[in-house]
Amino acid sequence: MSKHLVLQSDFGLCDGAVSAMYGVSLSVDPDLKIFDLTHEIPQYNIWEGSYRLYQTISYWPEETVFVSVVDPGVGTDRLSVVAKTVHNQYIVTPDNGTLTHILQNIGIEEIREIDESINRLPNSGESYTFHGRDIYAYTGARLAADVISFEEVGRKLNVNDIVELSNPKAQACDGIVTGTIDILDVRFGNLWTNINRELFTQSRMEYGDLLEVTIETNERLVYKNAMTFGKSFSDSRLGEPLIYVNSVNKLGVAINQGSFAKAYHIGTGANWKITIRKVNTKQ
Rank of each mutant, 00 (worst) to 15 (best):
F66W: 08
D115S: 09
S58R: 14
N218M: 06
I276S: 03
R220S: 01
S124Q: 03
I255A: 02
S50F: 11
I91D: 03
K156Y: 10
A170Y: 07
T201C: 11
T178A: 04
D95L: 06
F233M: 08
V24C: 04
V163P: 02
K250P: 05
L99M: 10
G132D: 05
Y44D: 14
V69F: 11
N158F: 14
T64Q: 10
A17D: 15
S19T: 15
M205K: 07
W47N: 11
F188K: 05
V28N: 08
L99T: 07
L242W: 09
L242V: 01
I215D: 05
K231G: 04
V279M: 08
V81Q: 03
Y59P: 00
M205Q: 06
T98G: 14
D95G: 05
Y223C: 01
M205S: 08
R133N: 11
E109W: 12
E113V: 14
S259P: 00
E212K: 04
R52L: 12
A226G: 06
A83L: 03
A137I: 08
M1P: 06
V67R: 06
C14M: 10
A172Q: 03
N249Q: 13
V245H: 09
G154D: 05
L211D: 07
Y128V: 10
K282N: 15
Y44T: 14
F11C: 00
I162S: 06
L191E: 02
L32S: 02
A83I: 03
G107A: 04
I46G: 14
R204P: 02
Y54Q: 05
G269A: 04
K3T: 10
V86Y: 11
G12H: 11
A17Q: 13
T217V: 00
K273A: 12
N123M: 07
G269S: 05
T56G: 11
E151D: 13
S80D: 08
T76F: 01
F130H: 03
D15Y: 12
M21W: 08
I195Q: 07
I41L: 04
N196M: 06
L251K: 04
I195G: 05
I102W: 04
V82Y: 02
R220M: 04
S203T: 12
L221H: 02
I266P: 12
V248S: 13
A226V: 10
W60G: 01
T100G: 03
N196H: 12
D115Y: 08
P72G: 11
Q89E: 11
D15P: 08
W47Q: 12
V67L: 03
T93H: 00
T217C: 00
Q89T: 06
T201H: 14
Q202R: 09
R133L: 07
R187E: 13
L37K: 09
L199P: 02
T56H: 11
D31M: 12
E110P: 02
E216T: 15
